[in-house]
Computed example of a mutant assay.
Amino acid sequence: MMVEILNTHRTQGGTLRYCRHDSASTGTPMKFSVWVPPQAKDGGEGPFPYLVWLSGLTCTEDNFTTKAGAYAWAARHGVAIVAPDTSPRGEGVADDPAYDLGQGAGFYVDATEEPWAPHFQMYSYVTKDLLEAVDAAFPLDPARRGIFGHSMGGHGALTIALRNPGLFKSVSAFSPIVSPLNCPWGDKALTAYLGPDRAAWRAHDACALIEDGFGEGFDEILVDQGLADSFLENQLKPELLEEAGAEARLKVTVRRQEGYDHSYFFIASFIGDHIDWHAARL
Rank of each mutant, 00 (worst) to 15 (best):
P37I: 13
W73V: 05
P84C: 10
T60Y: 13
L51G: 08
I81D: 12
L51H: 04
C59P: 00
C59R: 01
W35S: 03
V79N: 12
G90H: 13
G44W: 08
A70R: 10
P47K: 13
Y50W: 12
F64P: 01
D42E: 14
T65K: 03
R76I: 04
G43C: 07
E91T: 14
L54A: 07
T86E: 04
G69W: 07
L57R: 06
G78S: 08
T66D: 07
S55W: 04
F48G: 02
V79W: 09
S87A: 13
T66M: 12
L54N: 11
S55P: 07
I81E: 08
W73A: 15
Y71A: 02
V52P: 02
G90N: 11
S87Q: 07
F64W: 11
I81R: 07
D62Y: 15
A70V: 08
R76W: 10
G69I: 06
V36F: 01
N63A: 09
A72D: 15
A83P: 00
G44Y: 05
L57K: 00
S55T: 11
V36Q: 04
S87F: 06
F64M: 14
G78M: 11
A75G: 06
L54C: 13
P47E: 12
N63G: 01
H77K: 13
E45M: 01
W73H: 15
P38M: 14
N63V: 04
G78I: 11
A80F: 06
R76P: 00
V79S: 08
L54I: 06
D42N: 15
G69Q: 08
T58Y: 04
V34W: 10
H77V: 10
